[in-house]
Computed example of a mutant assay.
Amino acid sequence: MSDSGSDPTVEIYTSAWCGFCHRAKALLDAKGVAYREYDVTMGGPAKQTMLSRANGRTTVPQIFIGGVHVGGSDDLAALDESGKLDMLLGR
């Protein structure tokens, strides 16, 4: 992470017992990426926000980088494998 404060905000919507959520967070943690996590296990306003932002996608995780929806855990892993994740993160 840079100290400049210019890194894009990473947001991840998760639920408590979601293996894909844990995998996505582990990837971000391994890269040293700070993220905001929103637990949607019990629904509520955060779940409604996620549905709106993710164009109705109901599965978790839903991940956003710099306000752009990048998808779920498999999408995040594919971005990392292609080298595009680091570009999105401003690295």
Rank of each mutant, 00 (worst) to 15 (best):
M1Q: 08
D3R: 15
D3T: 14
S4E: 15
S4V: 09
S4K: 10
S4C: 07
G5Q: 09
G5H: 09
S6Y: 15
D7Q: 15
D7C: 11
P8D: 03
P8H: 09
T9V: 14
V10Y: 12
V10H: 06
E11F: 07
E11C: 04
Y13T: 00
Y13D: 02
T14W: 07
T14I: 15
T14S: 11
A16K: 12
A16P: 02
G19S: 11
G19A: 11
C21E: 08
C21P: 06
C21H: 04
C21R: 01
H22L: 14
H22N: 15
K25C: 03
K25D: 11
A26S: 14
A26H: 09
L27W: 10
L28C: 07
D29Q: 11
D29H: 12
D29C: 06
D29E: 15
K31D: 13
G32Y: 11
V33A: 03
V33Y: 13
A34M: 08
Y35S: 02
Y35G: 02
Y35M: 05
R36D: 09
R36A: 06
E37H: 02
E37R: 02
T41A: 01
M42N: 10
G43H: 07
G43V: 00
G43Q: 05
G44P: 03
K47Y: 13
K47F: 11
K47E: 08
Q48A: 12
Q48K: 14
T49K: 09
T49N: 06
T49P: 03
M50T: 00
L51T: 00
S52M: 10
S52T: 14
R53M: 11
R53F: 05
A54V: 04
A54N: 04
N55A: 08
G56A: 09
G56E: 10
G56N: 13
G56P: 11
G56M: 07
R57I: 04
R57C: 05
R57G: 01
T58M: 11
T58F: 10
T59Q: 11
V60K: 00
V60G: 00
P61T: 00
F64P: 00
F64D: 00
G66R: 05
G66E: 05
G66S: 08
G67Y: 09
G67I: 03
H69C: 08
G71F: 07
G71N: 03
S73M: 09
S73T: 08
D74R: 10
D75H: 05
L76T: 01
L76S: 05
A78P: 07
A78I: 12
D80Y: 14
E81Y: 05
S82R: 06
K84C: 07
D86L: 06
M87D: 13
M87H: 07
L88F: 08
